[in-house]
Nucleic acid binder design. Structure first.
Lengths: 225, 225
DNA sequence: GCAAAAGTGTTAGGTATACACCCATGC
DNA sequence: GCATGGGTGTATACCTAACACTTTTGC
């Protein structure tokens, strides 16, 4: 391995993905087992792997997540590229890290063996520099909630305003006033009422909302100068 | 070249840098000559080059900019990593693109042969995917002006409020009311009055200001929900 | 004294925040 | 009928946006 890496004279390129999902009242991240002695024995790490000569980073992300892990429907975007020389103690590997999001139902469908969902607050030491990548992703996600409609990829097609608020509260780690939250979200024009109602709940049924548009876009909240 | 690239089985890693400077009333970008027939003959392109096995991307950026170009003092940060398969028609090269900023006086010091400053609005077709990288950088810079103090790296140590406003107006491509701009900037606490005055101007001399702190940081402008 | 840019306050409209009660459903 | 979460309005404070004249210097 080491011989080969000095021969090829260039760093390898890998993709890593921090896939988040919100359920059971917590932000979860998808982890896989890493077992590469002597440096990384029976540890957790982020899913990912090498990018081949014939695929882009996006294609590599899809290939690695759909393979052993069985994750097919996810939103993801590039996060940051990590190039510290010894970030992988075995070889020189540059990691193009990505931030991914899936809904709860998609999360529940990942192959049993492929990966598992761990609450972000309970993640211990990860292999490589994956704790640093995870921290970067958490901050990015919390930031993007405020000025994009990225939250759409954490919720099902139809959802209640309370469900939406819970996702914001969990990721932002703060609570919001229900009335003010609704006013604010509705004023953004990123969701609309389906005029359908929840059924089978032991309380007054909530209205179901859906996201307008189809893409992740910025919402002009930042006032100009 | 092509033979080698198929042998090594992994994409090469390069860094490219979009270095901006504001002077003569326009946003300028630093370009170099690219002459790599048959695909790229006598074109302009962004400065950059391969990253070696023994350096990080940041170190590669510094090496490429300080070498032929003679640019030593600049701020830069990672922008985005471009991985399209044919972004370089000769070989598979992944580019970690960076956004750099220099003051006018630093810009004037670049080696004659190494590079030249071109107003962004007058940039024509660039080699590789460098137009796409440039566009990404322009948008990032305009966005970051609004919620960080990144502008500090485009101005000298001491500057007038009008100079600061001009930089904002040029990059944001909009004009601001002088009184409101001053109130807003001063309320951000990113600059302070040096109590020195301009000298030698044919009008009332302006106060000179300087940036507080030393790092690029986010300014809490985004209201919570 | 004139040309050029610096510097300075107020008002009106809109947005953010804080806060408490009634409603609809399942059991 | 009771437990549970759904749904709604107002008043205040703050921030944003629009706008015009006087001051200081060099020539």
């Amino acid at each position: 391995m080491n011989k080969q890496s000095t021969e090829i004279q260039t760093a390898r390129v890998a993709v890593d993905t921090v896939v988040f999902s919100v359920f059971d009242g917590a932000l979860h991240v998808l982890l896989i087992s890493v077992n590469r002695p002597p440096h990384y024995k029976n540890m957790n790490g982020l899913p990912g792997g090498l990018m081949t000569m014939k695929e882009t980073s996006d294609e590599a992300v899809r290939r690695h997540l759909s393979g052993k892990i069985g994750l097919f429907h996810l939103y993801f975007e590039q996060l940051y590229t990590f190039t510290a020389i010894h970030r992988d103690k075995r070889n020189r590997v540059v990691a193009i890290a990505h931030l991914g999001l899936v809904t709860e139902s998609e999360a529940k469908g990942v192959a049993r063996e492929g990966g598992r969902w761990v609450p972000v607050l309970e993640v211990g030491q990860l292999a490589y520099d994956h704790n640093e990548i995870l921290n970067t992703a958490v901050l990015r996600l919390a930031g993007k909630l405020l000025y994009t409609n990225i939250v759409r990829h954490l919720l099902p097609k139809k959802f209640t305003l309370t469900e939406l608020q819970k996702v914001y509260e969990i990721i932002r780690n703060e609570t919001f006033d229900k009335r003010n939250f609704r006013k604010k979200i509705l004023s953004m024009n990123i969701i609309k009422d389906t005029h359908e109602m929840q059924t089978g709940v032991a309380n007054r049924p909530a209205s179901l909302f859906t996201f307008t548009g189809t893409k992740v876009t910025e919402i002009p909240l930042i006032s100009s100068i």
